[in-house]
C-alpha cells in the first residue's frame, strides 16, 4: 500500500486493517493527529483524505490506499502558518492544544468548501464538535 502524506509518498508496512491514525503516528511519525476517544466522536484525529475531513481513527489504511493525506504538518510551518493556523494563534484558540490539530483540519476543510466568509453559526457548529467547550 502507498500513501502520499503531506506531499511525500510512502510505501507502507502496516497491516491493511490498521487505523490510518496509527499508521500516521507509529509508522510515519506524523504526530499531529491525536488518539483521543478512538471511536470517531472527538475529532482530534481528523485529517484530510483527498481534501475531505475524515476521522483517521476509524479509517482502515487499506481503504485509502493511494490517497493523498494532509495533516496539520502539511498546512504550514511555524514561520509560515496557514491562515487558519495563524488565526488560531492570534485568537488564543488553541486551549490546551491536544485537540487543536483536529479542529484546525476541520476548519480548513470548512473554509475550503465555503470558499469565502462563513457565518458565525457554521463556525459555532464546528467548534461544538470538539467537546472542549460549549458552543456559546
Amino acid at each position: 500500500m502507498k500513501l502520499t502524506v503531506n506531499g511525500v509518498e510512502h510505501e507502507l508496512a502496516s497491516a491493511p486493517l490498521t487505523p490510518l491514525l496509527h499508521v500516521l503516528r507509529d509508522e510515519l511519525d506524523v504526530t499531529s493527529p491525536k488518539a483521543g476517544c478512538q471511536q470517531g466522536g472527538c475529532g482530534t484525529c481528523t485529517v484530510l483524505i483527498d481534501g475531505e475531513p475524515r476521522r483517521s481513527c476509524l479509517t482502515a489504511v487499506a481503504t485509502v490506499d493511494g490517497a493523498e493525506i494532509t495533516t496539520l504538518e502539511g498546512l504550514g510551518e511555524a514561520e509560515s502558518m496557514s491562515a487558519v493556523q495563524a488565526a488560531f494563534h492570534e485568537h488564543y484558540a488553541a486551549q490546551c492544544g491536544f485537540c487543536t490539530p483536529g479542529i484546525i483540519m476541520a476548519a480548513t476543510a470548512l473554509l475550503e468548501r465555503k470558499g469565502g466568509p462563513v457565518e458565525r453559526d457554521e463556525a459555532r457548529r464546528l467548534a461544538a464538535t470538539t467537546a472542549a467547550a460549549p458552543a456559546t
Partner: peptide, 22 residues
C-alpha cells in the same frame, strides 16, 4: 468563543502576521 472568532477571522482573511516565539 475563541475558536469561533478564529474561524471567522480566517474565513474573512482577517489574519495578521504572526510574530515568531520570543
Amino acid at each position: 468563543m475563541k475558536i469561533v472568532d478564529a474561524v471567522l477571522a480566517a474565513s474573512r482573511g482577517q489574519v495578521g502576521t504572526v510574530p515568531d516565539l520570543p
